[in-house]
Design a protein around this nucleic acid. Structure first.
Lengths: 123, 123
DNA sequence: CCTATTGTGTTATTCACTTAATACAATAAC
DNA sequence: GTTATTGTATTAAGTGAATAACACAATAGG
């Protein structure tokens, strides 16, 4: 059940993003314990070092913190998580609108298309 | 005026995308001549080999074609360009909705946010 | 015919990412 | 106090992207 990665972006960035998404979406709740580096690495079918690198970044952002032998935990600061969620959403929207503009669709067009287009079929 | 690149994705992929966007948006019209590899490379402040790689992919897709000593030209097939534009838009929308879903927003939420959020300020 | 221009191919080097295989550090649990 | 568990650090090797510096191929234009 190895995770899927985009071969065109560093894996550790994608790992960071996936874990971040789990945090902001609530899949990993505030204060919850994360699986160990080794477990996560095995689940993702990735080298532990790579996962370590991803987690370091989240740690730098204050979203997770490590306790030497107990494991890693999501921050208990719900406001911080909410903030991260808002930032993430805004960033995605900006990127999306910029790209749609480059294609030739303004904001209105984009909204119409989103509502028109079919859901991508799950493979 | 070197172009800006995301350090986390191969430059040649980004070059391909930028040129593709210029084609589907009409900045490079159907049948129009592209700048030479060397000129484009200088403009982007990138190695000509890297640009070559990007253009090869567009060529493979039939969107541009090279004429040995005259230069490179955008395809005259407007239907193909339109098709590429639609595909690109659909792909962007799918990716966007997927990521928003991962953050915790469904399609309706996404639309509301798009209409709510301020335009990103040009830096 | 010559020559400049354009696309294309080759080789070498540098660098970041990733994996692998460990070793070390700290502490909770016993 | 010992031990197992967890995070952290180190070193080496392999891979692909990007750059650099060319050489070669084809042909439009004089």
């Amino acid at each position: 059940m190895a995770w899927q990665f985009d071969p065109d972006r560093p894996i550790y960035k994608q790992l960071r993003e996936r874990i971040l998404l789990k945090i902001v979406s609530g899949a990993y709740g505030a204060g919850a314990q994360l699986p160990t580096v080794r477990d996560l690495a095995e689940e993702a079918a990735v080298n532990p070092n790579t996962l370590q690198k991803a987690l370091s970044e989240l740690e730098r952002d204050g979203l997770v913190h490590a306790q030497r032998t107990s494991g890693r935990f999501v921050t208990g600061d719900k406001a911080l998580i909410k903030q991260a969620k808002n930032d993430l959403a805004k960033e995605q929207i900006d990127l999306f609108l910029k790209k749609m503009a480059a294609i030739g669709y303004n904001r209105q067009d984009a909204v119409v298309l989103i509502q028109t287009i079919e859901e991508a079929k799950p493979k």
